[in-house]
Structures are given as C-alpha cells and as structure tokens.
Write a protein that binds this DNA or RNA. Structure first.
Lengths: 205, 205
DNA sequence: AAGTTTTGTCAACAGGCATTGACTTTGCAT
DNA sequence: ATGCAAAGTCAATGCCTGTTGACAAAACTT
C-alpha cells in the first residue's frame, strides 16, 4: 500500500521548544495523537510522527501513556468527553444544522468533525472497536437519549446516532462538499429524516 | 494492542488440495481475501493468512495480484460487482427487512453484511477511497436511485445510503445483536426512517 | 552549591510482515 | 518419452515501527 502522504491538515505547528513541563508535553502529545488518530486511524498512525508533531520524543509516549494503546484510549476519552455540549441545542434548528453540517460546508472548519472522524476510525478498525463500545454507550448514546426524551428515546437515540454516523461516512467517501441544488435537496431530505427522529413521540397503535 | 483473535466467521473451509489450476487458485485467494479484508480491514489482514485459507502459498499472491494492494483492489471490485440484486426487492418489505438486518439476528451468520463491511473498511483506507468513491457512485448510488425513482431520487438515494451505512457502523460498534423490546423498538424506528426515504415523493411547498 | 528527582534524548532491539528470487514440481505439447 | 512453460514451494531479506533501557540535562530541594 502506498505510504499515504503524511501531511498534516495545516502545516505542522512545530511547537516552539517548550520549557520543561511534563503537563504541557503530555498535553501536546495527547493533542497530536487525537489529531493523527482521527486522520489516519489507529493502525496507520505512527508514534514517531505524533512525537514529532508534539515536539517531543517517542519515549515520552511510553512514559506518559504506557504505549500506543494507552495513548489511543486516552485520546478517545478526551475526544468523546467534549460531547456534553448537546444540551442547550435548539430542537427546532438541530436537524437542519446537522444536515447542513453533513452536506459539508466548503468553508467550514474541520474542528467539529474531527471528533466524529475519530469515532468513525475507531469504529471501523477491528482493533479498536471493542474499546469504543462502552465509551459510546455511556458518553454518546446516553446524552442523546436524554436530550431526545419522550417515548422510546433509547431506540430513537440509537437510530439517530446511526444516521448521524452514516452521514459522516458518506461524507468521508464523497470527499468533497455538495453544491448547488443537489446540496439543497440533500439537506432537505436529511433534515426531514433527522427531524422525524427527534420529535417522533411514536404515534403507535 | 490486542492481537485481535483471528478466528474465521465460520471455521476455515481449509480447501482440499487443489489440482494445479491457476484460475481456481487465483479465485480461492480472491475469495479468502474478500472475506478477510472485510473482517479485519486492510492493515490487520495478513497475506500469510489469506494464503493459508486459500490453501495456497503467499508468493502466489504476488504472482497473481502483484501484491497486497493489488489483491485488495481486486477484491474490492469483485465485492462491489455483486450488488445488482437490488431490483426486484419489494418496496413495502424493504425498509423493515433492512432494519431487521441491522438490528442483528442473534442466530444468523453475518454473510449478508460482508460486502458492506468491506466497503466500509475500504472507505477508511486512504489509498482506496478514490476508487471507492467512483464505485459507490456508479454501482451503489445509481441503482438505489433508480430503484427509488420519483422526485429528488438522487438526494434520497444519498441519504438512504448514508443511513444504511450508519446502521452498519452502529452495529459494528455495538458488536452484539439487540434483543427483547429494545430490538423491537429499534426495528420500528429504523424501518420508519428508511420508509420515509423510500416513498417520500417530497410533499414540498 | 550539592544532591536528588523529574524530564527529555538517543540508540539499539525485536517482532511482524510484505516482498523477492531461486528452486522444484506438474502438466502439456510435440 | 522428453522438454518447456506454467504453477507452486521455500527460505531468506529488509523495512517499518513499537518498545526499552541507559544516559544527559534541567529543575527543584535543602
């Protein structure tokens, strides 16, 4: 397989020589790890590269995280941890906002999607999927379910999560953002689909 | 990271000693490759294992496919090619069938999702993403769109595909099949979501 | 200022795995 | 039967990469 050009999204920050500070170093490594794991996935991420981006030495990864897997788990936790901002979202705007996000904004910053990419990569790699199961359950599905509320919130949360993930993958495959009328149609449809999951209180028999 | 138990889905067929036959050997390798790439992903698939399952020698992989990447691409093509069976599906039953499939049958063998798993893994493999993009467009999105028909069929197809993929990933993360009432609720919701995409002729303004 | 602990650097080491090329066997045509 | 090409086997080879431990430099303590 091709070596896969290992270019960073934006040119390596190349951290200025840090004054000795274990916390800062650890943090830098974690951050670089998060980014690279998200971009390349577990297997194709090389510790030496992470160290380089963090401006640290490989050996420190072992010291601070025990090894590659330790760093990954830590990075995963850190990435998922930021998912609490769900509450406070406007129920009416949510669907369309997500849909727009998923259509891909040619100008949007990739910050938002990094977490998801991370999850996605973790999910699709057999090596890390087991690690993900619990984390997703607790910190992802749970909050969504609570936010949704109402009847069958658990099932709706599951489906919603699935749909959401699906959009991410689709976007990943597609590569580029949609434009023009196709974009509009897509957003409409996607928003409607999501909305159906948000407020469906199950008409039931 | 865990070595990832390299157990086959169903016990290795362990092909009976083949009489010398390049076509058959090539085919066996391709088949084994398809299965293992789908199960383990590119990086964690080992050529020696493929060869073993095919009852062939590693060196033959080079001879017939040029190398690992060549085999992967070939396997991908082969997997994608088998997606024509869409037409003929019952529009009424489709949604629920997919939903059920995605909930996971505790007793079923997972053959059904193998192709999709493969696609998914390929999607996250950087070097094959471009190839996949095209393939998905032509052999996946196209047929779905035609099958859907009606207004905005392209956009609906896109969303449907995304949703479908999403279910797959969710299932991948979840690992085990759902059971009991949660299963029922999930299927109901998922089916409704999919159905909404199938027959929505866009009520529009 | 000396000694100690923390932080960081460097250079192997070792395992896994794709790749290679030389060698052997089989099948087939003559 | 015999010889040649195709098919299959085998044993290196070498790279990539995570891990490790010994060493150096800084920071902190007393």
């Amino acid at each position: 397989m091709r070596p896969v050009p290992r270019t960073a999204i934006l040119d390596r920050p190349l951290a200025p020589p840090r004054r000795r500070d274990s916390a800062a170093t650890r943090g830098a490594i974690l951050e670089a790890g998060k980014r690279q794991f998200a971009q390349f996935g577990y297997d194709r991420t090389v510790l030496r590269e992470i160290a380089a981006e963090a401006g640290a030495d490989v050996a420190l990864i072992k010291r601070y995280f025990g090894g590659k897997e330790g760093l990954f788990v830590e990075a995963l936790k850190s990435a998922i941890g930021a998912q609490d901002r769900l509450r406070g979202w406007d129920r009416a705007a949510f669907a369309r906002e997500i849909a727009t996000l998923m259509a891909g904004n040619p100008h949007a910053q990739e910050d938002r999607t990094q977490t998801f990419q991370f999850l996605l990569r973790a999910a699709t790699s057999p090596s890390t999927a087991p690690l993900l199961n619990l984390a997703v359950q607790e910190r992802f599905l749970g909050p969504i379910r609570d936010w949704l509320g109402g009847k069958e919130s658990a099932a709706r949360a599951r489906v919603l999560a699935a749909v959401h993930i699906g959009f991410l993958v689709e976007r990943l495959i597609r590569g580029k953002a949609l434009t023009g009328p196709e974009r509009e149609a897509f957003i409409d449809r996607a928003a409607a689909t999501i909305q159906g999951l948000i407020d469906a209180p199950t008409p039931g028999p």
